Amino acid sequence: MPGNRTSHDNIVRVIALHKVGKNNREISKQTGVTEATVSRLLIKWRADGVGDKVPVHKHAGGKALKISPKTLKLLKRQLDVTPSITAKELKNNNPKLLGDVSIRKIQENIQKRLNYSKVKARVKPLVTAKQRRRRVQFAKGHKDWDLVQ
């Protein structure tokens, strides 16, 4: 499939088979990697100096992360200590680390990368059981009163 990455194990197998003296077609059949990929991997391997070093994938692309993994670890510690802290408070508490990061981006990272869900306020009853008992007791005690009383 186009766009799939070759696993590290397959890259090592391709290089090992090449060292044994197999040609690209034989390597391709044995590993299941296309001939073009075998050729490309071997060119990379030769360019690096033909040692035991295996070619590694570079960054997958895309925009760089605004919040580093170390900063996320610090945020996680702060959230564990005080779970009700807001993203705005986190930003104000860590101006050097989060000075150029928006509050929304902090919230997004907390939810997606740290797997903290949004906390919804608990639904409270309008009248508690204790209040309900007291009201009934009051009503029963005063049901015989007239308007003047």
Rank of each mutant, 00 (worst) to 15 (best):
P2A: 00
G3I: 09
N4T: 12
S7L: 00
H8D: 02
D9H: 08
D9V: 03
D9I: 08
N10F: 07
V12N: 04
V12M: 08
R13W: 04
R13H: 10
I15E: 03
A16P: 00
L17R: 04
L17I: 02
K19H: 10
V20I: 07
V20F: 08
K22G: 04
K22W: 14
K22M: 08
N23E: 06
N23C: 06
N23T: 12
N23M: 06
N24G: 04
R25C: 05
E26H: 01
I27R: 03
K29L: 02
K29Q: 06
K29S: 03
Q30N: 02
Q30L: 09
V33E: 02
T34H: 10
T34C: 02
T37Q: 14
S39D: 11
L41R: 06
L41D: 02
L41Q: 03
L42K: 09
R46N: 09
A47Q: 09
A47V: 00
G49Q: 12
G51L: 12
G51D: 11
P55Y: 05
V56L: 15
H57Q: 09
H57V: 01
K58I: 12
A60M: 09
K63A: 10
K63L: 09
A64T: 10
A64I: 13
L65T: 09
L65G: 05
L65N: 12
P69N: 15
P69F: 14
K70M: 13
K70A: 14
K73A: 13
L74Q: 06
L74P: 00
L75E: 00
L75D: 00
K76M: 13
R77S: 11
Q78S: 00
L79S: 02
D80L: 15
D80W: 12
V81S: 07
T82H: 05
P83K: 07
I85P: 03
I85T: 10
T86M: 03
T86L: 10
A87H: 03
E89A: 15
E89Q: 15
K91I: 08
K91T: 02
K91L: 07
N92T: 13
N92W: 03
K96M: 05
L98H: 01
G99P: 01
G99I: 12
S102A: 04
I103E: 11
R104C: 06
I106W: 09
I106S: 04
I106A: 07
Q111C: 10
Q111T: 06
Q111N: 07
K112D: 08
R113P: 01
L114T: 02
Y116C: 04
S117H: 13
K118H: 07
K118V: 13
V119K: 06
K120V: 15
K120Y: 15
R122C: 07
V123N: 06
K124L: 04
K124R: 07
K124E: 03
L126H: 07
V127H: 01
V127F: 05
T128S: 15
A129V: 11
A129S: 13
R132W: 13
R132I: 02
R134M: 14
R134G: 09
R134W: 15
R135C: 12
Q137L: 13
F138K: 14
F138S: 14
F138G: 05
A139R: 11
A139D: 01
K140Y: 09
K140F: 11
G141Q: 12
H142F: 12
K143I: 12
D144C: 03
D144R: 01
V148T: 06
V148P: 00
Q149A: 04
